[in-house]
Structures are given as C-alpha cells and as structure tokens.
Simulated scan of single mutants.
Amino acid sequence: MTLFAAVSFAALLAGCARAPQPVHFFAEGKPPRLSDWHLVEARDGRLAPNADVVPYDLNTPLFSDYAHKFRTVWMPKGAPAKYDAEGPFDFPVGTVLSKTFYYPRAANEARASKAVARTYDTADDFAAGSGNAALDLSKVRLIETRLLVRREQGWEAIPYVWNAAQTEAELARTGDAIPLELVDDQNQHEGFTYVVPNENQCAGCHVANVKAKRLEPLGPKARHLNREYAYADGKREQLASWSEKGYLSGVPAADVPRDADWHDPAQPLDTRARAYLDVNCSQCHSPTGPANTTALDLRSAATDLRRLGVCKPPVAAGRGTGDRLLDIVPGKPDESILLYRMLSDEPGVMMPEMGRDTTHREGVDLIRQWIAAMPGSCGA
C-alpha cells in the first residue's frame, strides 16, 4: 500500500469513527450511559441531537430552579403520534422523549465553579448556525438528561446525570443532589441544591390520572407545542413540522389550542397566569390528577372559578394554609393560600411539592398581579 493510500484509508476510518450511530431504542432494560441511546451526544463542543431526533419547546415551561431545558423527540419511522386537543398525544411504542436540564455558565466564573446564571436569556445557549438545535458546551453546564421511553407496557422514566467533564451522562436510578449557586445580573449569589429525582419520584408528576396509574408525558400537548421553533434551517410552526416529519397525524386545520407565554408582558395577564398554573400545577390539580380531592382544577381550559380556587376554602386545613381561609381572595394576594404556598420553600407547605429548591420570584410576581387584578370579593 502506498503512503498516500494508507493516509487516505486512515482518514476514511477516522471519518467513520466520528459518524454518529443511528438511534438505538432499548425495548427493555436501562442502559448505563445516555450515549448508548445515540439520541443526543456531546461532540465537538456541542450537545447535538442525532438524525431524526427533533428538538422542541413549550409556550410556557415548568419551573425547575431556573434551569433551562433542551427537549427532543424521536419516533420509529411510519408510526406517527395521534393528535389530541386536550391530553398528551398518543405516541407509538418506540418513542423516546428527552429533556436535558442545563444552566448558562455565570460570567467570570471558573468552569469548575458551582455558579450558574439565573437568567431567562437563551441567546448564547446554542451553537452558532444551529438555530436552537445544538447547545454550545463552552457556554452552558449540563446537569441531567431525563428520558421518557414508550415501551410495550407503557411509559418508563430513566434519569441520567452528566459528569464533571461534560462528556457523558450516567444512569442515576436513585437520583442525585448537586450543590449550585444562582448568580443574577447584580452578581448576587443564591445557594441551592439541585435535586435529580429518583425513578420512583417521577411518578409524583407523570401519573396524571390516578385511576389509570400510568406514567404519561406532560409537555407534549397541543396547547404547549402550538408555537414556532428555531430549527437549524429556520423558524417553523412545531405542529406543522412534526406532521411533515411523519411524527404527528390528525392535526386540525383550525382551532388548535394555544397556551400563552407566561413571560411575555405583551400577552394578557389572565392568560399568562392561567398558562403558568396549567403547566406547573394541573398535572396534580385536575379532575383526574392525584390532588383531585382538593377540588382545585388549575388547567388553563377550566372555567369554574370556584374550582379554580376563587373564594374556595381548602379541603384540608393545616400549616399549609398559613392561617389563611381561602385559596384565592380576589384583589388580596397576601390573603390567598395559593400565593402563600408558592412563596414557601418549606417541605409540606410549598407548592409544587417537588421539583424545586428555590422560590420562583417572577412566577410569584405574576400570580400576585393576577390575584390583585381580580374583581369581586368573597363576602357573604
């Protein structure tokens, strides 16, 4: 073999080694590494999805200690999900949803520092030229990636935690606790513990129907997904893109519900607050949820003000009320149990009960404004 041929052959082998393998769906078991699935991989300074792994986002996301989230979906070819106007889509066996929790790195902090930025700005999170389709690992710190896998017996949650080198995420069946510090624009530091839930704790949110007792996705619903996404080749409507990709069938031409963006002040206060409560609370507080005995219905489509909490006494009194008498008192946020529990970070009092170690200041401000603007009173 000539020297030129040997070099060419070596280059060809190197190129093959670098090429990502296709997505590997595991019908059973829990692989020890996230990379075993070939869904999203840390490569060349990016966290990027594999071929046919589609990134997506929600109009209003669940609050998780100010973490940013990179979501993806993958499905086997020829088996699209079926559209549903209210609940989660009917996904085929073989679907894998991933959600990577990460933080922008705090300015002027060493790479190994616990400090992460408390910001909503995602402009620097993504690699140049990728749209919102690949994270720039020089700008962000990866924390965990959760998989929700649709197997024959139903959905299964599998958590992975990223190593310090940011090269691999490893199976964390018992969860994890990671000390971090949020740093805001004024360089104020707030220490907290980021908690990765164990496998059993996933059911606390993802079993949204207590009779069925099955895990189900929470984010991929029509009202959350009905928005544009900045793909690598430009912005497009997500539901249309999923349909064109063969990932979704049955989307109607009109009347698709859409939740508001809670953080957009140009949108009406009421729709923003209702969207916020929907995504953060309605998985439990709905007619079928595990908190249905409270008679609270916090879905954005709910219309009964009493079940929304307006002038409604709590079903069970206790320290969770903060000695307040009603869930929501129109015009009086500080007399409302709902706001009191959102402000708290005390176990047994705070709401939501899990998924946060900090108080969502901006979310509290939104609900405070919403209650303060409510007309009427709870007089006899």
Rank of each mutant, 00 (worst) to 15 (best):
D327Q: 13
P314D: 03
A165H: 14
L171T: 07
M351C: 12
E41S: 13
S98D: 09
A317I: 04
V161A: 12
R299C: 11
V161E: 08
M75R: 00
A17D: 12
Q267Y: 04
N59F: 03
P220W: 09
F4N: 08
L305P: 12
V116Y: 03
N198L: 00
H68C: 08
D261G: 03
R46D: 03
D264F: 10
E170G: 10
A260G: 07
Q369C: 02
K114I: 06
V349W: 08
G331D: 11
V251Y: 02
M354F: 09
Y194I: 05
W370K: 01
A79V: 10
T321N: 12
G355E: 00
E216C: 06
P290W: 02
G29L: 03
D345W: 02
D136G: 12
L182S: 08
Q369S: 15
A240D: 12
P31H: 04
P352H: 13
P252I: 07
N59A: 07
G175Y: 00
I158C: 01
H360C: 13
V183K: 04
E181N: 14
A51C: 02
A316M: 09
D357M: 13
F63P: 01
L147P: 01
R356S: 12
G379C: 08
A232S: 14
T193R: 11
E346F: 11
N200E: 14
V195K: 04
D259A: 13
A253L: 09
P330V: 11
R111S: 11
T145H: 06
A373I: 09
L34P: 06
G379S: 12
D357C: 08
D185C: 02
D184I: 05
G15D: 13
G15M: 14
V96N: 00
A254E: 15
L135M: 08
